[in-house]
Design a protein around this nucleic acid. Structure first.
Lengths: 238, 238, 238, 238
DNA sequence: AATGAATGAGATTTCATTCAT
DNA sequence: TATGAATGAAATCTCATTCAT
C-alpha cells in the first residue's frame, strides 16, 4: 500500500519476509540445540521444538526434511563454528608449536565455554543416533584431525621430513585428549571456573608429548629442550 | 532315598537348572551386546534380542527389568572386564612409568581388539541414551580415571610430592587419548592390523607428555631425559 | 479481500474446522460409550473405539490422554446429563415431597430408559477400574446425594427443623434404591415395558419410608401406626 | 515310621497332608480376598497372590482353574456367608416385619463390619469383570432378593393375599438401599463408628416404606398416619 | 502336589511425518 | 508459507497360563 523510496510495497514485504524466514530457521535450530542438550535427542519431540521456536510442527518440516536432518544441520553449523575458530588459531604468526597452544585455548575458551550446548551436541547427542549421523560425525572429526595433522606437519617440518601417518595419529590423540577433558570438566563435572588451570595442564601435556615424540623421531636428544624452552612456557603463552 | 556321597537326583536337577539359568542370562546379555553394536541400541528391538538368544520376549523381561536395565548390566560387565585387565597391568612389577605402557597395550590388545563389541558399547552405544545410563557411564569412567590417577601418583612419587589434582587431569587426558585412538582406528577405520604401530606412537606420546609435565612440575630440567631414558623404550617394551 | 457483513473464507473455514473437531470428539466419546457397555471397559481396545468412530488410533489420543481419561470424560458427561435432568425435577413448583416422585420418574424414564448405555457406564463399567476412576465416581454420586439431601431438607422444613445428617442418610438410601431397581430391571433383566409399574412401587416405597421417618422424627405419633394410615396414599397417587 | 494308635504312619501323613491342603486352599483364597480389595482385581497379579499365600504360582493353578475362577470361588464363599447370616435373622421367632430389622442389623453388623473385604468384593471388585462373573453376581443377588421377597411375602400374608411381584420389587429396593448405605458409609467414607445410628435410620426408612406400601395395597386405612401429614398431598402429586 | 521359569499374544501409547486448508 | 489435526506403524512391557521336573 505504501511506497517507500524506490522499493515497492511488495519489495519491502518480500524483504521482511526474507528476514522473518531466516529468523524462523534460526529459531528452530536454536530451540533444537537447546532441547537436544537438555533432554537428549531421543527425548526431544518435534512438537517440543516447534513450541519452543514458536512455530507450528509443519513449519519445522518446511525448513528441515526430518528430525535427523535437523540434527545434521545443527552438527554442520557447529562444525563450521569450531573449525573457523581453530582455523584462526592455527594461522597465528607464532611458531608452529605455539599455534597448538593457541588452538587448544581457543577450543576450551571460545568454543566449550562459550557454546556448551554445541559441545554437548557434538560429543554426546549426536552419538549413536543412526548410521548416517555417525558418518557425518566422522566426516566432521576427520576434518578436525586433518587440520590438526596439518599443524603437526608444520611442526615436524622444523625438525626434518614430515611423516604424515605419525602426524595423523598424534592429531587423533590430541583431539581425543581435548574432547575428553572438555567432556569431563564441562559436561560431567562443572569446573568451568578452573578451566584455565586444567587447560594449562592439558596443553603442557600435549606440548611435552609432541616434542618428545618428535625428538625421538628426528633423533634430537635435546628435542625436549623445546620443552625447556616451553619450560617458561605455561605462564606466558596465550 | 538319599545316597550318601553322591548328590541326590533333586540336587543334581537343581544344579543343572541353576546352570541353565545362568546360561540363559548370559545368552541374552551376549545377544544384546552383539545386536546393540551391529544395529545400534535404539534400532535393536527386544524381539530381536529374544530371537537371537533363542528365548521368548517374556524371558528377557524375566532376567532384566527393561531394555535400559539390560544395557546397564552390559555396561557393568564390560567395565568389570576392562578394569580387571587394566588392574593387572597397573600392578606390574616394572617401574611405574612403564606400567602405563603396559596398561595401554593391554587396553588396545586385550580389550579393544579382543572384544570390539564391548568397546563399541562403552564408547558409542551407551552414549546419549538417557540420564540414568549417562550417570552409569560417568561412574564407570570415573573409576578408570581414579585407577589411572593412582598410577600417575606413583610416578609422581618418584619425582617429589604427588599432586592429586594434576594427576587427575593427566589421567583424564590420557584416557581420552586412548579412547579416541581406539574409536578412530578400530571403530571408524579398521586398522587393527596397524594397531601395534599406532599404539606405540600413542604410548610414546603419553610417556613424553607425562614426563615433560612432571619434569616441569618438579623442576627437573632434564626431566625429559626421561624421554631419553624412554628412548630405549619404544623398541623394547611390550 | 474482506467482505463486510459476511465471514471471510478463512473465518468460514475456521468455523467448519471447529465444528468438525467437536464432531470428532463426540464421535469418539459415543463410540466408547457404546463399546464399553457392549463389551465391557477392559475388553474394549482403543483400536475398536477408533474403528467405530472412524478415526485413527492416534486421533483418539489426540483428544484423550488415555483410555482411562476417555472413561472419566464419559462419566462427567453422563453425570452432567443426570444432574441436569434431576435438577429440573427438583425445581418443580409442586410440594417438596412430590418433587421426589418427579425426580424418580425422570430418572427412570428420561435417563435409564432413554440412555441405558449411560446408566451402565455409571453403575457397572466405571466400577473397580482404578483408584482414580473410583474417586470420580464417588464425587459424582456425592453430588447426587447432596442434591437429594437438599430436596429432603425441604420436605423436612415443612415438618420442623431440618436435620442434615438424617437427610443425608435418607438421600443415600433413596439413591441406592433407585440405582438398584434400575440395575435389576433394566440391566440384569429387561423389563423396560413394566418399568412404569415398577417405578410406581418403588416411589411409593420411598414416599412411605420418607414420611414415616419424618413422622417419627418430628414426633407425629401415629405417623406410623403400623402403616395403618398410609392407606390413603399409595393407591391414588401416580 | 512311627505308628500311633491304629493309624499307620501313612494314614497320619495322609491326614496331615489333607490338612495342609485345605490350609493352602484357604490361604490362597484369603490372600486373593485381601489383595483384590486393596489393589483391585485387575491390578492384582497371580504372582502377588502366590507370594502373599506363601505358595508358588503353579500351586494357585492347582487349586483354581484361573484367576477368574478364583474370584468366582471367593464370591460363592462370600455369598454363602451372607446368606447364612441373613437366613438366621429371617428365621427369627419375632413378627415378620421385625425380622427385617434383624436381618438388616445382621447385614451391617455381622457382615459389613465384620468382613469389609467381602463386602468390597461383592459390591465393587466383582463388577464389570466379565460376562461370566456378572452372571454369577446376578445369580447371587437373585438369591438374596428371593430370600428377602420371601420374608416380605410373609409380612404380606398378615395383611392379605401376598403379591409376589410387588414383593420382589420391594425386595430389590430394600437390598439396593442396604448395599448403597454400606458402600457409602463403609467403603467410600469410613463411618463405622456411627453405623449404629445410620442403620437405625435406614431400617426405619425400610419399615416405614414397607408398611406404607402394604397399607395401601391392602387398604388398611390409617396405616400411615405419617401419611396423614402427607395426607393432604398424595392425591395431587404426579 | 508343588514349583517357578518360560511363554507369547496382545494392549496401550508414542511420535515422526503428512497434507488439506 | 504456515498451520496443526490426523495418521498409523511400531515398540515396550505385562501377565495369565503352562509344564517339565
Amino acid at each position: 500500500m505504501h511506497r517507500q523510496g524506490v522499493l515497492s510495497g511488495n519489495a519491502v514485504t518480500a524483504l521482511r519476509r526474507q528476514r522473518e524466514k531466516e529468523h524462523r530457521y534460526r529459531s528452530i535450530l536454536e530451540a533444537a540445540e537447546r532441547l537436544f542438550c537438555q533432554r537428549g535427542y531421543p527425548n526431544t519431540k518435534i512438537q517440543d521444538i516447534a513450541r519452543a521456536a514458536e512455530v507450528a510442527v509443519g513449519t519445522v518440516y518446511f525448513y528441515f526434511k526430518s528430525k535427523e536432518d535437523l540434527l545434521l544441520h545443527l552438527m554442520d553449523a557447529i562444525a563450521l563454528n569450531v573449525r573457523t575458530l581453530l582455523g584462526k588459531a592455527f594461522q597465528s604468526p607464532r611458531p608452529p608449536i605455539d599455534r597448538f597452544q593457541e588452538a587448544g585455548r581457543a577450543f576450551f575458551r571460545d568454543f566449550c565455554l562459550a557454546a556448551p550446548y554445541q559441545l554437548i551436541i557434538l560429543l554426546r547427542e549426536s552419538v549413536g543416533i543412526s548410521a548416517e549421523v555417525e558418518v557425518r560425525r566422522r566426516a566432521i572429526f576427520e576434518r578436525f584431525h586433518q587440520d590438526a595433522a596439518g599443524a603437526i606437519l608444520e611442526v615436524m617440518g622444523e625438525f626434518g621430513t614430515p611423516d604424515r601417518s605419525v602426524a595423523e595419529v598424534l592429531a587423533v590423540a590430541i583431539a581425543g585428549m581435548m574432547e575428553k577433558v572438555a567432556y569431563q570438566y564441562l559436561i560431567w563435572q562443572d569446573r568451568s571456573d578452573q578451566l584455565e588451570a586444567i587447560t594449562t595442564e592439558a596443553l603442557a601435556f600435549i606440548r611435552g608429548g609432541l616434542l618428545s615424540v618428535l625428538g625421538h623421531l628426528y633423533g634430537k636428544p635435546g628435542a625436549d629442550a623445546g620443552g625447556n624452552a616451553g619450560g617458561q612456557r605455561p605462564g606466558k603463552e596465550v
